[in-house]
Design a protein around this nucleic acid. Structure first.
Lengths: 232, 232
DNA sequence: ATCGGTCCTTGACTTAAGTCAAAGACGTTC
DNA sequence: GAACGTCTTTGACTTAAGTCAAGGACCGAT
C-alpha cells in the first residue's frame, strides 16, 4: 500500500515552477491539484472557453494553437513535462486565449483558479516563479512576432534549426515532430517547408534524412537567419 | 516649498499596476523610483542591452519595436501614461528583448531591478498585479501572432479599426499615429496600407479623411476581420 | 506666399509563398 | 506482403504583398 499524498508532492517538485518551494507550500499545492489524463489527440480546452485554472504536464506533450477560418493551424507552443499552460486565463480572469490539445497521451495536473490565486496571494516566492515563467514566454513571443513579420520562411527555418541544434552546436537535429507540425510552428504550410528544405539541401546547407537533419554549413544558416535570407 | 516625497507617491498611485497598493508599499516604491525625462525620438534602451530595471510612463508615449536587417520596423507595443515597459528583463535577468524609443517627449520613472525584486519578494499583492500585467500582454501577443500568420493585411487592418472603434462602436476612429506607424504596427509597409485603405474606401467600408477614419460598414469589416477577408 | 521637408499615394514590376492536384514514401494493420 | 491511411514531396498556377520610383499633399519655417 503506497502513500499517495507523498508521491504526489514529490511529483510536484519536478515541475520547475515549484522546484524551489519549501515543503509546506508544496503540500498545499498538492492539496489543490487535480490529476487528469488525456488520450492522444484529445482537445484539452478551446479558445474562449472560461478559464477555470491552469495545467501542469507530468507526461506527454501538449500543443497550444490557433486556427484560421480556413482551418490553417498556427502552433504557438509545444509544451513538455514540467511545463505549465493555461495560466494566462488565471490572471486575466477571461477565457483561454487559444486552443490546447494533447499531442500524445498526457498525464496532467489541473490547478483550479480560485484555490491557486489564494495560495499565491500569500506567497511571494511562488508569485516570483510565476513571473519568471510568464516573462520567458513573453520573450519567446517577442521573437515569434519578429520572425513572422520581419523574416521570410527560410530565415525562420534557419533560426529554428540553429536553435534546436543548441549551444552545443549539435551536427544533427532530430525533429521530434512531423514536418507538417514544424510548418505550423513556423507559420507556414508543409509544401512550402518541404520546398525550402530541398533548396537548403541543394545549396549544401543541410542534409535531411527522414526526421533527422544534418547541419552542414552552420555559418550559411546563420547568415540566412539574421540577414534577410535569400537562397538562390 | 513643496514636499516632493508625497507628490511623487501620489503620482505612483496613478499607475494602474500600483493603484491598489497600501500607502506604505507605495512609499517604498517611491523610494526606489528614479525619475527620467526623454526628448521625443530618443532611444530609451536597445535590444540585447543589459536589463537593469523597468520603466513606468508618467507622460508621453513609448514605442517598443524590432528592426529587420534591412531596417523595416515592427512595432510590438505603443505605451501610454500609466503603463510599464521593460519588465520582462527584470524577471528573466537577461537583456531587453526589443528596442524602446520615446515617440514623444516623455517623463518616466525607472525602477532598478534589484531593488524592485526585493520589494516584490515580500509583497504578494504587488506580484499579483505584475502577473496580471504580464498576462494581458501575453494575451495580446497571442492575438498578434495569430493575426500575422493567419490573416492577411486587410483582415489585420479591419480588426484593428474595430478594436479602436471600441465597445462604444464609435463611428469615427481618430488615428493618433501616422499611417507609416500604423503600417509598422500591422506588420506591413505604408504603401500596402495605403492601397488597402483606398480599396476599403472604394468598397464603401470606410471613408478616410486625413488621420480620421469613418466606419461606414461595420458588418463588412467584421467579416473581413474574422474570415479570410478578400476585398475585390 | 514660397520654399523645403516629410508623409502619403499611385503605378509598374517582382517575388515569396499559398493553392490545387497528383504521385511517392512510410508505417500499420489485417 | 498487400492494402490502407497519413505524411511528404513535386509541379503548375495564382495571388498577396513587397520594391522601386515618381508625383502629390501637407506643414512649418523663412
Amino acid at each position: 500500500m503506497d502513500k499517495p499524498a507523498i508521491d504526489r508532492t514529490d511529483r510536484l517538485s519536478l515541475i520547475p515552477l515549484f522546484a524551489g518551494l519549501p515543503r509546506p507550500h508544496l503540500e498545499a499545492l498538492t492539496g489543490i491539484a487535480v490529476p487528469r489524463t488525456v488520450p492522444a489527440g484529445r482537445r484539452i480546452f478551446s479558445e474562449g472557453e472560461e478559464g477555470r485554472g491552469f495545467y501542469a504536464i507530468l507526461t506527454g506533450r501538449v500543443k497550444i494553437f490557433k486556427l484560421s477560418p480556413e482551418g490553417k493551424e498556427q502552433i504557438l507552443h509545444l509544451f513538455s513535462p514540467g511545463e505549465i499552460f493555461g495560466e494566462v486565463a488565471v490572471f486575466t480572469g477571461q477565457g483561454y486565449p487559444a486552443h490546447a490539445a494533447a499531442e500524445r497521451a498526457c498525464s496532467l495536473l489541473f490547478f483550479p483558479r480560485e484555490a491557486f490565486v489564494g495560495l499565491i496571494r500569500g506567497d511571494a516566492s511562488l508569485a516570483l516563479g510565476m513571473l519568471a515563467v510568464l516573462s520567458v514566454r513573453l520573450r519567446r513571443f517577442t521573437r515569434m512576432v519578429e520572425d513572422l513579420s520581419l523574416k521570410e520562411v527560410p530565415g525562420r527555418l534557419a533560426a529554428h534549426l540553429l536553435y534546436r541544434s543548441g549551444a552545443e552546436k549539435k551536427e544533427v537535429v532530430e525533429l521530434d515532430l512531423s514536418k507538417t507540425q514544424l510548418a505550423a510552428l513556423l507559420g507556414t504550410i508543409p509544401e512550402t517547408l518541404s520546398r525550402i528544405l530541398t533548396r537548403m539541401g541543394r545549396r549544401g546547407l543541410i542534409r535531411t534524412q527522414g526526421s533527422r537533419i544534418a547541419i552542414l554549413d552552420r555559418a550559411g544558416l546563420e547568415t540566412i537567419a539574421s540577414e534577410g535570407g535569400k537562397l538562390p
